[in-house]
């Protein structure tokens, strides 16, 4: 059948088709499937499917993402941004694991397995006890620690974007004295095919 829209292009989407692709979950719980999983179940799945990259305790192997820990580090010189320290919503954990993990085998976890892994990630972040069960009923009652850690984009309030920034633009004799180098990329020497390294080695 035709779309019935103004240009009559496309065809109606069937309910089964929408259900197959529409797996997103919102912070208010919209989109959560029925189901449940425990910390203990999640530990088994995590150790088998997740730990080789993310570490046995969510600490991350090599440069793979750290999932647990880091609470209270967001004002440190080197913040550790994890589910427990940084993420605002548990819905994002469920949604992302379900849609895109394990890396290289996405969409392979069932709804219940995803509940279980999510419960275990809460446990690794010291947010629930080891006998906890996560399910579609208690899910939306769980706030992550950094729930209130975000604000809207207010970059336009910064001075360089203020209305008078252009009026203050200096063209001549803007600074005293000659320019002095305060930092040099070549000192770090981490650039591939480093074009200047012939002077260092």
């Amino acid at each position: 059948p035709p779309s019935g829209g103004p240009m009559n292009i496309g065809r109606p989407a069937l309910e089964d088709e929408i259900a197959a692709w529409d797996i997103d979950v919102r912070p208010d719980g919209k989109g959560l499937p029925e189901g449940s999983g425990t910390v203990a179940e999640g530990e088994g799945i995590y150790d088998e499917r997740c730990a080789s990259c993310h570490g046995a305790f969510g600490e991350g192997e090599g440069r793979w993402p750290v999932l647990a820990g880091g609470q209270g580090t967001l004002t440190d010189e080197r913040p550790e941004k994890t589910i427990g320290s940084y993420w605002p919503y548990l819905s994002t954990v469920y949604d992302y694991v379900h849609r895109a993990m394990p890396f290289g085998d996405a969409r392979s976890l069932t709804d219940d397995e995803t509940y279980a892994v999510t419960a275990y990630l809460l446990y690794l972040n010291d947010l629930v006890k080891d006998d906890f069960e996560l399910n579609s009923k208690n899910f939306s009652g769980i706030d992550l620690p950094n729930h209130d850690g975000f604000k809207p984009d207010d970059r336009q309030s910064e001075p360089q974007n203020a209305e008078n920034a252009q009026a203050e633009l200096c063209m001549k004799d803007c600074k005293e004295g000659p320019a002095e180098i305060t930092m040099r990329a070549r000192v770090l020497d981490v650039t591939p095919d480093n074009a200047d390294s012939d002077e260092q080695d």
Partner: peptide, 23 residues
């Protein structure tokens, strides 16, 4: 939807520990 790419990633942490989102 507060997806991973607009919460964990593509949010901009400021010095005071608060992060801008939807930048």
């Amino acid at each position: 939807w507060a997806q991973r790419e607009e919460t964990s990633k593509y949010t901009d942490l400021l010095a005071n520990g608060v992060a801008r989102r939807h930048t």
